[in-house]
């Protein structure tokens, strides 16, 4: 009886949370060279929240991001992404989980040989929605203000435009979670601002959870919540929006 109730409880909690982390530890290396980089992290990210992760370099921000993105195998603690436990999963089982997550990198990582639309289409192809992929890609680029650039190669686009193509690629499949690592680092103030405003706009609309690592103080105001990580431990966690409901 008790077990059933707690199970039901955990299912309902999982429905509300995009990411649930409990007592997560992570190490690099093995044997004598083993070095712990994340210490006992517990964190809940509700759906639709925009979270900025800050901290000095070497604090483990990017490592945490790659763990949430199911890019590394995990052994200690608990990490549920969209209700699915990924601690202990082998690399192969992580691949389908990545498809629910949009990644935005510091570098745009676009194929120079493909047009903006084709770069976005490579993402749509993962969903087997191949018949409409061109339409979906063009719509997404249009919403990011790139309607007149859909058939341009990355070489012919500015830095901000390239980053917006990368964002279109991450968002075209309407992922439930977006993980971004310094998305504005390579951009000037105005384009950086544009890029995060667009991201915020879309994520609010689609109820997407965003976790963004950044050093860029100019964009902190887009966040609902700011988490500070120091030496692999959660240092501070501040809600900027009082109406954001946190489930504990």
């Amino acid at each position: 009886m008790v077990a059933t109730i707690s199970e039901q409880n955990s299912v309902s909690v999982a429905k509300e949370l995009a990411i649930k982390i409990e007592h997560l530890n992570f190490y690099f290396g093995t044997g004598e060279l083993r070095k712990q980089v994340l210490f006992d992290i517990s964190l809940d990210l509700p759906k639709g929240q925009i979270v900025i992760l800050t901290g000095p370099s070497g604090s483990g921000k990017t490592t945490l991001l790659t763990l949430l993105g199911a890019l590394r195998t995990l052994h200690e603690g608990s990490l549920q992404v969209l209700g699915k436990e990924i601690v202990g999963l082998p690399d192969k089982a992580l691949i389908p989980i990545r498809r629910n997550i949009g990644f935005i990198f510091q570098a745009h990582n676009l194929f120079e040989s493909l047009s903006a639309s084709q770069n976005v289409e490579t993402s749509v192809e993962l969903t087997r929605n191949i018949g409409e992929k061109r339409q979906l890609a063009v719509d997404m680029l249009g919403q990011l203000g790139l309607s007149d650039r859909v058939d341009y190669k990355p070489n012919a686009l500015s830095g901000g435009q390239k980053q917006r193509v990368a964002i279109a690629r991450a968002m075209v499949n309407r992922p439930k979670i977006i993980l971004a690592d310094e998305p504005t680092a390579a951009l000037d103030k105005a384009s950086g601002r544009d890029v995060v405003t667009l991201m915020r706009h879309f994520c609010e609309e689609a109820g997407t959870t965003v976790l963004m690592v950044t050093h860029d103080n100019r964009i902190l105001d887009v966040a609902d919540r700011i988490i500070n990580l120091v030496d692999g431990r959660l240092e501070s966690d501040s809600d900027l929006e009082t109406q954001t409901s946190r489930i504990s």
């Binding site: 890019l71 498809r99 990644f103 990198f105 570098a107």
Partner: peptide
């Protein structure tokens, strides 16, 4: 030359 792109594709969920 395309390693970051290939890695990105793997992060996107390509096998």
């Amino acid at each position: 030359d395309h390693l970051p792109e290939y890695a990105t594709m793997k992060a996107m969920g390509y096998r």
